[in-house]
Every structure is written in C-alpha cells, then in structure tokens.
C-alpha cells in the first residue's frame, strides 16, 4: 500500500495494522502502546480524543454534534472514567449554511448537558469549498478514573452482556444516504452511556462501546487479550426489526455494524443476573442480554467463536474489507 485507502479508516484489520506497523514504531510509548479507548493519566485522570466526519451530518436519531459528544464521552465511560470536560474543535467548509452550524451547536449543548460534561475549550478553522465536507469535529475528553478495566483477569464462565440491540446507527446512516432504496423506521442509537458507570462497582470487569467494526471486531480484540476463547450465542444477540430486515434483504452482517450508544460488558458469572437487571431498568438497557461467555473448552485461546442459530460453530474475524452489499 503506497497510498491511504478508505479501508484504513474502517476500524478493521487494515487500521490495526496501520497503527501497529506505521504509527507505533514512530510514536510508541508505554501508555500509547496499550491502545485503549482512553488513556489513564497520572492523578486519576483519563484522556481520550476522537474525530467525527459522518456523512450526512444530520440523520434520524442524531447529528454530527450529538455524535461528537457521545462518542468521546462513551470512550471515557467504558475506560472506567466519569466524563468531566470536553474540548471542541470544528473544521468547517466554506459555504456551510449558518442554520446547520447553529443546529449542530444546539445538539452539542443538549448532548453535553445530558452526559454531564462541560465544554472547556474549543477551536474553529475554515477550509476552502471542496477541501472538506461541510463540517468535521474533533472532541477530546477528560474524565475522573473510578475503575481500572482488566480484560486479562477474564476467566472461563465470565459472561458477556450487550446493553441493547446492535447496528441501528450504521443502518440509520446508510438509509440517510439514500442507498439501497430501502425504507425503514430506524433511528441511530446515539446516546451517552453514563448509566453504565455504577456497574463498574457491581461486577463489570471490562467494557467497550460497540463502534466501528461492530461487535465481532471489538470482541475479537478482547479474545486476543485473554487466555481463553469467547463463545457467542447467535440467537441471544439482540437485534431490532429493521436491522434484522436489512440483514435479510441486503445480506449485511449485523455483527459488523456500528452503534454509538451500545456497549458490551464482561462480568463475573455470579454477577450477570444482577447486572442484567440493573441494565434492563434503564430506558437504554431494556433489550440488554447475555450474549456469550468466556469459554475454557471450545476452540483455542484467543479465538472468538459464534454458535450459530443452526447449531454450528465458526470463527468470527475482525472486520476486513468495507461493507458492500452482496449481490451476484
């Protein structure tokens, strides 16, 4: 590869290879090498950053502003930190409508209040028409550490819990782009995950928000870090009707679709029931479900395995190439 391709940004294998082979040899330090969603800093602080380039900027269930707040906030939460402060940097394309910008700002205000974070600093740059696409946002976040996630302490029997149905965000974006000629009532799941914070005290040993690359990609990364395999039960994975419909009509695999308000939790076997009942009491956790477990018998260490509805077993790979609908 001698040029950057779109695949590099898809959150899959290509991106991980890029970080491992290109970024870390130049910039690697012990903290960065952990490749966490947020880094824990001295003084009990956690720090994270993310850029948002979604197209279109407005979509059912949110916009680039809600995404820019929630995405960064959620990275802090799943890293064991209470979100406190955000920075906010805009890169605007010359000619962007003022009304759009104001609408995004109002979304940012609403989302940051909901997530309990303060916008503490910011920046604005404008690029010539065509050198950017309407609006790009970068947010960095600082949070107070309340827990240290520890994937490596996972042991057979530990349960994986999804906090809700998967894939609505990706699908809402695809539909908002008018692709496939599909009509469905689907809204992005974009939301802050603050309601997960108390669970760090009641049995959660690891969390990840299910973003780019989807469930299969983030759990293959978890599987690679632990001494056992992970087995997912296909029939237990919560999916909404529109996502099941898109899977059936387009052949899209929901295990690789992104969310912006869902997470997966790893909990001790004995705590799973309790965690589940806490989650289900929250409006964002009503469809929470145990979707699998760390397994000491099936497969080899480091493998992520799906027990299919049909009863077969297969390995799940991280996202490889970009999602194109299948057609022959």
């Amino acid at each position: 590869m001698d040029r950057v391709s779109l695949e590099l940004g898809s959150g899959g294998r290509t991106m991980r290879d890029f970080i491992a082979r290109t970024v870390l040899p130049v910039l690697g330090n012990p903290r960065l090498r952990k490749l966490l969603d947020a880094s824990h800093l001295p003084g009990g602080m956690a720090f994270t950053t993310d850029s948002y380039v979604v197209d279109p900027i407005f979509f059912p269930g949110g916009d680039i502003g809600t995404l820019a707040v929630n995405g960064t906030v959620n990275d802090l939460i799943v890293s064991g930190a209470v979100p406190r402060f955000l920075s906010l940097a805009f890169i605007l394309e010359e000619g962007l409508g003022w009304a759009s910008l104001e609408r995004v700002l109002r979304s940012i205000r609403r989302a940051s209040r909901q997530a309990g974070v303060e916008i503490a600093t910011g920046d604005t740059k404008v690029v010539r028409r065509g050198q950017g696409d309407k609006i790009y946002i970068n947010t960095s976040g600082i949070g107070r550490v309340v827990a240290r996630p520890k994937a490596s302490s996972a042991r057979p029997g530990d349960k994986l819990i999804a906090t809700g149905t998967l894939g609505e965000h990706s699908l809402a974006i695809l539909l908002a782009r008018g692709e496939f000629g599909l009509e469905a009532k689907v809204r992005s799941d974009c939301a802050p995950l603050n309601f997960l914070l108390p669970l760090w005290k009641t049995g959660a040993i690891w969390m990840r928000d299910v973003t780019r690359g989807g469930l299969a990609t983030i759990l293959s990364e978890l599987a690679a870090e632990i001494p056992d395999s992970i087995v997912l039960e296909e029939e237990a994975i919560p999916l909404s009707r529109p996502v099941r419909a898109a899977a059936g009509l387009l052949g899209i695999d929901p295990l690789y679709l992104a969310c912006e308000g869902r997470a997966v939790l790893l909990v001790r076997q004995g705590r799973a029931g309790q965690v589940l009942s806490v989650l289900r009491k929250h409006p964002l956790g009503r469809r929470a479900a145990v979707i699998g477990a760390v397994d000491g018998r099936v497969g080899r260490p480091g493998e992520l395995i799906l027990r299919t509805t049909a009863g077969g077993l297969r390995l799940l790979e991280p996202l490889t190439s970009e999602l194109l609908p299948r057609i022959c």
Binding site: L182, E183, A245, A246, G248
Partner: peptide, 11 residues
C-alpha cells in the same frame, strides 16, 4: 412496486 420484510420496504 414495493415489498415488505419485517416492516422495511424496498422498491
């Protein structure tokens, strides 16, 4: 026309 599957319609 359009067909429906699980509430999703497609041309």
């Amino acid at each position: 026309g359009k067909v429906d599957y699980l509430g999703t319609k497609v041309q």
